[in-house]
Amino acid sequence: MRLRRCGTHAVLVEVDSLDEVEAVRAAVEAAALPDVVELVPAARTVLVATRPGGLPAVREVLASADLAHRAATATEEVVIPVAYDGPDLELVASTAGLTPAGVVELHTGAEYRVAFCGFAPGFAYLTGLPEPLRQPRLDSPRTRVPAGSVGVAGEFTAAYPRATPGGWRLIGRTDAPLFDPRRPTPALLAPGHRVRFEATP
């Protein structure tokens, strides 16, 4: 774990894996430090911003954090309904040596966790993707991926909250309200949330 000062009242925690990112995020969140105002995990870092004078308490929590064991956190499971009719479903199936039905079975049978959010508001990178579905991005990204598209890329799966360019392999689509700026909490998914996909007719 490496700590880098970011401005006056924030620290960037650098680690070596997504599991360690989750361990740091969970440890700081579980400590419920009153002066922590923002906690932003990414692929290999966690940014912790505090009120003035709050960094020493954060450093104490980090000094005792066990990166080898993810802290157990009770989070509500979010179920996302998906119609598995994406334009790359056949490609993903053939690459994995499966039938399309086998892809659906694997994708819906796994439990996922939001590792971090980024790229677009409400776009959550989910870990827990079964190994056969871990596939590269498309050679040529699409200039427009429709909102609600569900895709896989590398070790992640995700649903696009809005229409954007993208190179993920698309296996389905959802009508789940992934991002709504009018809600008190605009994003449906946040780091640490557990997620499960459910096939719809």
Rank of each mutant, 00 (worst) to 15 (best):
L3T: 11
R4G: 03
R5C: 02
R5N: 03
G7Q: 03
V11L: 12
V11H: 05
L12P: 09
V13M: 03
V15M: 06
D16A: 15
D16P: 01
L18Y: 01
L18T: 13
E20W: 04
E20T: 00
A23R: 08
V24I: 15
R25L: 11
A31V: 12
A32L: 02
L33V: 07
P34G: 10
D35Q: 15
V37G: 09
V40Q: 07
V40E: 05
P41Q: 07
P41Y: 03
A43C: 00
A43Y: 05
R44V: 02
T45R: 01
T45F: 03
V46E: 00
V48M: 12
A49V: 10
R51S: 08
R51F: 06
P52F: 12
G54M: 10
A57N: 06
V58H: 02
V58F: 11
V58M: 12
R59V: 12
R59D: 09
R59K: 10
E60F: 02
A63N: 12
S64F: 03
A65H: 05
A65R: 01
L67K: 10
R70P: 01
A71E: 09
T73M: 13
T73A: 13
A74L: 12
V79L: 15
I80Q: 02
I80S: 08
V82P: 00
Y84G: 06
D85I: 08
D85N: 13
G86V: 08
D88E: 08
D88Y: 06
L91F: 02
V92Y: 02
A93Y: 06
S94L: 01
S94V: 09
S94R: 15
S94F: 01
T95N: 05
T95R: 15
A96H: 10
A96R: 09
L98H: 04
L98Y: 04
P100R: 12
P100C: 04
G102M: 12
G102E: 11
G102R: 12
G102C: 10
V104M: 13
T108M: 09
T108P: 08
G109H: 07
A110S: 02
F116M: 15
C117V: 12
G118P: 08
G118L: 11
F119E: 01
A120W: 02
P121Q: 01
G122W: 04
F123W: 10
A124C: 07
T127N: 06
L129K: 04
E131V: 14
R134K: 13
Q135E: 05
R137L: 09
D139N: 02
S140T: 15
R142L: 14
T143L: 14
T143E: 11
P146Q: 13
P146G: 04
A147S: 15
G151S: 12
A153Q: 02
T157K: 08
A158T: 05
A158I: 11
A159N: 04
P161E: 14
R162H: 08
R162V: 10
R162S: 15
R162G: 03
P165E: 05
G167T: 04
G167C: 06
R173N: 02
R173T: 14
T174K: 10
D175V: 11
A176C: 09
L178V: 09
D180K: 13
D180Y: 09
P181G: 07
R182H: 14
R182M: 11
P184V: 06
P184I: 10
T185R: 15
T185Y: 03
P186T: 11
P186M: 10
A187S: 14
L189G: 01
A190V: 07
H193T: 03
V195Q: 00
V195H: 00
A199E: 13
A199L: 06
A199S: 15
A199Q: 14
